[in-house]
């Protein structure tokens, strides 16, 4: 299994994801520099968290035009698995690979803590190791995670079961997002964007008893091993 983690200037969770993919899940993993044009034959691409280009202007807005992004978009549109975590989610929105947009958190403050999430859709490639409606815990760490989508778009997300993760309830919602949305997929189900950080809760040593992030990656691995096709 081959995975690529894109490093933009200002990415700061690239090594964290890299470590989880390569050391825990034995992916043959590359850090892909943002100025590259072409992708090797990856089974999974990750856009990691951080502050790409300082998050100046809007989170993810400038990264969306990085040289590598054309290839990322092609890969995603051809059905390749793409996971966008935090800043990566914001980049997916700015690239129109996922619908909606991100605003600053309702209380205007950066927030870093564990939150409870509900697995709203466990039928995706990314979540089939969770139970339906299971309550799990993952850390969030962001200042702009206030997901917004208009009514029509929201209905379409609901109709197509694209809301994958929600904050478990209003009081667990750290940013004011519409419908407590924490993570969504595209209609086809090969692209997932989420604000929480699964890579921060995949190892016992740093999140004892709460390895809920592990199962997100193990879902992906299981799917790939079951013969998910490779996009090149």
């Amino acid at each position: 299994m081959k995975a690529g983690v894109v490093t933009f200037p200002g990415s700061n969770c690239d090594h964290d994801v890299y470590n989880v993919l390569s050391k825990i899940f034995s992916f043959d993993t590359d850090l892909i520099w943002h100025q590259k044009r072409h992708l090797n034959n990856y089974d999974l691409l990750v856009l990691p968290g951080g502050f790409s280009y300082g998050d100046y202007l809007r989170s993810g807005a400038i990264a969306r035009f990085a040289r590598i992004m054309d290839s990322v978009i092609d890969f995603a549109l051809a059905g390749g698995l793409v996971l966008g975590i935090c800043n990566g989610f914001q980049i997916l929105l700015e690239s129109n690979l996922l619908p909606g947009a991100m605003k600053v958190n309702d209380n205007l403050k950066f927030v870093c803590k564990n939150v409870s999430l509900e697995v709203n859709n466990n039928k995706t490639t990314f979540t089939n190791h969770y139970c339906e409606n299971e309550i799990i815990e993952m850390p969030v760490a962001h200042g702009e995670g206030n997901y917004y989508i208009d009514k029509k778009g929201l209905n379409s997300l609901i109709d197509n079961n694209q809301i994958v993760l929600r904050y478990a309830n209003q009081s667990e919602n750290p940013n004011g997002s519409v419908e407590n949305i924490a993570g969504i997929s595209n209609n086809k189900g090969n692209i997932l964007g989420l604000m929480p950080h699964p890579e921060r809760c995949s190892e016992d040593i740093i999140s004892p008893g709460r390895r809920d992030g592990y199962r997100l990656f193990s879902s992906i691995v299981a799917n790939l091993k079951a013969g998910g096709e490779q996009i090149g």
Binding site: C13, D16, N19, F110, K113, A141, H197, R200, E203
Partner: peptide
Amino acid sequence: EQYDHMVMTNTV
């Protein structure tokens, strides 16, 4: 809670 105290995934 306003500080990212987990990034780099070494914080035990």
